[in-house]
Design a protein around this nucleic acid. Structure first.
Lengths: 187, 187
DNA sequence: TGAAAATGTCAACACTTGTTGACTTTTTAG
DNA sequence: CTAAAAAGTCAACAAGTGTTGACATTTTCA
């Protein structure tokens, strides 16, 4: 491991935290470099610029093999993550980062595309069955909405609540979403 | 109506659109002034600065009396808004604006606070009953998550779908959310 | 050891941002 | 009509942005 690799890792670590907390546009390279104790110029040298650094953090953050693995049930993986207070904080800020940057005029398209490629498409294939795309969309909607309400908007009904209660709320909504029947008329 | 009021309105209109589409930090006063055909300096003069202008647009946007009225069922108001293609576009971008700016380091706290005061608290009072805060939180979670998935992330399962189908999906998830029973053990 | 490559440092650049003050034009009112 | 107030115009500011190139230091390896 060369010295430059250490520098790269320090930059990615600092950049990930900064981008997740403040979003792409509100994060300055000088602040990242300061936190990483690295000269600003090295960012452009090693990652080609701000966008390159963001891409690097995004790729790393969206690498989530356990969620897509055929051995696991995605629903259980998600619920377990959120029911655990430690991983909960990490996961909710992960969602927050997605939501923030998926609407950013500069990196929004990149975020949405990467999200599709690395998470949604494999997840849809993993879920399988009829109307997988519908069930996936409603599943994601619940997970994202719940995270927003719990962490970002902090509505007491979901924010000031024990992790196990939140897990039950989440499971309740997810199961309901997965049971949606596209055709309103029975067979 | 003095001439300055016309200028104020033009600025608020242009600012609302810009803030909703690109978020607070990614919107420059010069761009707003250009769209409104007004000199930049007048913004600081009339609204005290960028933050003041944002506050003005926010207050106006969060004024939604029909949702809180005792004569209407909030759930039906929301579903109706989203089932109508015209108001759907407006409403989803409304949610998008909230999500974008509720996480902004500069205006996030203001947005969340205003949201609580003008929407969530009255809505909770309007819903009433036991565990109103829980039901409200889960209700909001579904609405926000669905909007994100449909407009922002554009998952085909909810994005490439007729308005009436989307309305059914939304209703299904909302009703499930409202039926959540906090206590897992029956009486 | 010594040349070459890798890594790090520093200063400056062109650009955009929000805001301010001096100034001119238009409208208001006695 | 005319003086005062309102409304609008223009240029400049200080601060912050990402990026670049020249230079210094360290490491690599023949």
């Amino acid at each position: 491991m060369g010295n430059s690799d250490i520098t790269r890792d320090k930059l990615i670590a600092a950049a990930t935290q900064a981008f997740w907390e403040q979003g792409y546009s509100n994060t300055s390279l000088r602040k990242i470099a300061q936190v990483a104790s690295v000269d600003v110029a090295l960012i452009s040298r090693y990652f080609g610029g701000k966008l390159g650094l963001f891409k690097a953090t995004l790729t790393k953050a969206l690498d989530w093999p356990e969620l897509v693995s055929p051995d696991n049930d995605p629903v259980e993986v998600v619920i377990e993550k959120y029911a655990n207070p430690e991983s909960d904080a990490h996961q909710t800020s992960f969602i927050r980062m997605i939501v923030m940057n998926a609407n950013d005029p500069q990196v929004g398209e990149l975020v949405r595309q990467t999200l599709r490629d690395k998470l949604f498409d494999p997840l849809e294939a993993r879920m399988g069955g009829q109307k997988a795309s519908t069930r996936l969309a409603m599943f994601i909607a619940v997970v994202i909405g719940a995270s927003m309400v719990r962490q970002s908007l902090q509505l007491p009904g979901m924010a000031a609540v024990e992790p196990d209660v939140y897990a039950r709320q989440l499971r309740h909504m997810i199961e309901a979403a997965l049971q949606f029947d596209e055709d309103p008329v029975g067979p």
